[in-house]
């Protein structure tokens, strides 16, 4: 796929480099020459360009990119203006980073296809994992539903998924199991490999130490979290 990343701060450059490592075509843009130079060897093309300059943006042929990512958010004016300009230039899909609710609202209003709050999302995840050490990851799907990763409660260990009555009694779905499977590393040491069982069979047994990825209503997930 082809991506254009505008704004090469920590967030933008991480996106650009990760996409490039995954083998995608990445055009990385910033008005700061130093930032552009840092990425030069790591992405398909890196350009010094002011993304609020309409003429300059139009010369890029943004129609050809699958996603244009507006990664600057500190300078709200620049973020809004370049989101608008890239949409006008025919970008198929635009993802923009917001720094506040009002900023997000404006970005959506002017046509951003996706708006994200990396700091807020990370903050929620860190808070979840610190306040409940058994929670490892957390995705809010809607105010009512979420997906969390929890350590299998003892009440589930040694039982098959069916026997846990996850769906019938607790109203949650176990959508994946992450398991550390011990193996010999060399002649002396035992180590483990990470296994992920996606959409596990109802007859799959839950083992001590399994991480369960569960989907359900938040109130139901809370009940499962309270299980010993």
């Amino acid at each position: 796929m082809e991506f254009c990343v505008i704004g090469l701060g920590r967030f933008g450059s991480a996106i650009a480099q990760t996409l490039a490592r995954k083998g995608h075509e990445v055009l990385a843009i910033d008005r700061d020459e130093g930032r552009v130079q840092e990425l030069e060897d790591k992405v398909s093309q890196a350009l010094v360009l002011d993304a609020t300059n309409e003429k300059a943006l139009k010369s890029l042929g943004l129609k050809d990119f699958d996603w244009v990512i507006i990664a600057m958010s500190q300078d709200i004016e620049a973020s809004i203006l370049s989101t608008m300009l890239v949409k006008e230039a025919g970008a198929k899909k635009v993802l923009a980073k917001a720094s506040s609710d009002v900023h997000a609202k404006i970005l959506k209003r002017i046509g951003a296809d996706r708006v994200i709050f990396p700091e807020r999302e990370m903050g929620q995840k860190v808070a979840e994992s610190l306040s409940s050490p058994r929670i490892f990851d957390y995705i809010e799907l809607s105010p009512e539903y979420s997906i969390v990763e929890i350590v299998a409660p003892s009440a589930f260990q040694g039982k098959t998924i069916k026997q846990t009555e996850a769906r019938t009694k607790y109203g949650i779905h176990i959508i994946a199991i992450k398991r550390k499977q011990p193996k010999m590393e060399d002649e002396k040491n035992v180590t483990y490999k990470d296994l992920i069982l996606v959409a596990p069979d109802p007859n799959e047994e839950i083992l001590k130490g399994d991480l369960l990825v569960i989907l359900g209503k938040i109130e139901n997930i809370e009940k499962v979290k309270e299980l010993k």
């Binding site: 350590v151 550390k180 011990p182 002396k188 040491n189 035992v190 180590t191 483990y192 130490g209 991480l211």
Partner: peptide, 15 residues
């Protein structure tokens, strides 16, 4: 050391 190290790995496996 062997036992201490492996207890560490085991504790990792059981989270």
């Amino acid at each position: 050391l062997d036992a201490l190290y492996h207890l560490g790995v085991l504790k990792e496996v059981i989270h």
